[in-house]
Measured scan of single mutants.
Amino acid sequence: TRVETATETAWISLVTALHLVLGLSAVLGLLLLRWQFPAHYRRLRHALW
């Protein structure tokens, strides 16, 4: 049971790290898009909202 718990903890930390990385890359990508294509971003936002 001790090994299982350790594996579970490792998986949880791995998944958390993955989610953090994905979230950060998504935010960075959005910022980059907004910085590179302001007109396109505004049009996209206008279409979405």
Rank of each mutant, 00 (worst) to 15 (best):
A47F: 09
E4M: 15
R45Y: 06
E4D: 10
R42D: 13
V27K: 03
L44V: 14
L28D: 04
R34P: 05
H46T: 10
T7K: 14
F37R: 04
L20N: 03
H40M: 10
A26Y: 05
V15T: 13
A47Y: 08
A39S: 13
L48M: 13
E8W: 00
L30E: 00
H40C: 12
H19S: 02
G23P: 01
Y41K: 04
V3R: 00
T5S: 00
L48W: 08
E8L: 03
A26C: 13
R34S: 09
L18N: 04
G23H: 00
F37I: 08
W35V: 14
Q36H: 15
E8V: 01
R43Y: 08
V21G: 07
V21S: 09
A26P: 01
R42L: 11
P38S: 12
R43H: 08
T9H: 10
T9Q: 12
L20T: 07
I12T: 12
R43M: 08
L24T: 05
V27Y: 11
T5H: 00
S13K: 07
T1I: 14
E4Y: 13
L18T: 06
E4L: 12
A17L: 12
H46V: 07
A17R: 04
L44T: 05
A17S: 07
F37N: 02
R2E: 12
W35H: 14
L44Q: 00
L31F: 12
P38L: 09
G29K: 02
F37G: 02
P38Y: 11
V15Y: 01
L28G: 02
T7R: 11
T1Y: 12
L32W: 09
S13E: 03
W49T: 05
Y41A: 15
S25P: 04
P38W: 06
A47K: 11
L32C: 05
S13D: 05
I12R: 11
L24R: 00
L24G: 05
L33W: 10
R34D: 01
L33G: 05
A39M: 13
E8H: 05
L14S: 02
L20G: 10
R2V: 10
L31G: 04
H46F: 06
W49K: 07
T9C: 06
R42S: 14
W11Y: 12
A39D: 15
R43E: 07
A47D: 06
A47R: 12
T9F: 10
V15I: 11
P38E: 10
A39H: 15
R2M: 14
L32Y: 06
L32D: 04
L24E: 01
E4P: 04
L33V: 09
V21A: 13
W35G: 15
W11I: 08
R45F: 03
L24V: 10
S25R: 03
L24P: 05
T7G: 09
A10M: 07
V27E: 04
A39K: 13
T9G: 11
E4G: 10
L48F: 06
T1H: 13
T7E: 06
L31N: 04
T16F: 11
Y41L: 10
T1V: 12
T16K: 05
R42G: 13
T5N: 00
L22C: 11
L30H: 06
I12F: 07
T16A: 12
L14R: 01
A39E: 15
F37L: 09
H46N: 09
A6D: 07
V27S: 09
A17H: 02
T5V: 03
R43W: 09
Q36W: 14
V27I: 14
T9Y: 09
S13C: 14
R2C: 10
H46D: 10
A17C: 12
G23K: 05
E4Q: 11
L31W: 14
E4W: 14
E8R: 02
L22I: 13
L14V: 11
T7Q: 13
W35A: 11
V15F: 01
W49C: 05
Q36I: 15
A10H: 07
L24H: 06
L18H: 02
Y41I: 11
A26H: 01
T5E: 00
L20Y: 02
L31C: 15
T16H: 05
A17K: 00
L28F: 08
L30F: 14
L18E: 01
L22E: 05
V21N: 02
E8P: 09
A26Q: 01
T1G: 07
L20C: 13
L18W: 10
E8C: 06
R42T: 15
A6H: 08
L18A: 02
V27P: 01
T16N: 03
Q36R: 15
H40N: 08
I12P: 01
V27W: 10
T16V: 14
R34N: 03
H40K: 12
L14I: 10
S25W: 00
G23C: 15
L44M: 09
T5A: 00
W49Q: 00
F37Y: 15
H40A: 11
S13P: 05
H40L: 08
R43K: 12
L44A: 10
H46K: 05
Q36N: 15
T1P: 07
H40S: 10
Y41E: 07
A47Q: 08
L31P: 05
A17T: 08
H19L: 03
L44G: 03
A26N: 03
L20R: 00
Q36K: 14
V15A: 09
V15Q: 06
W11P: 03
L14G: 02
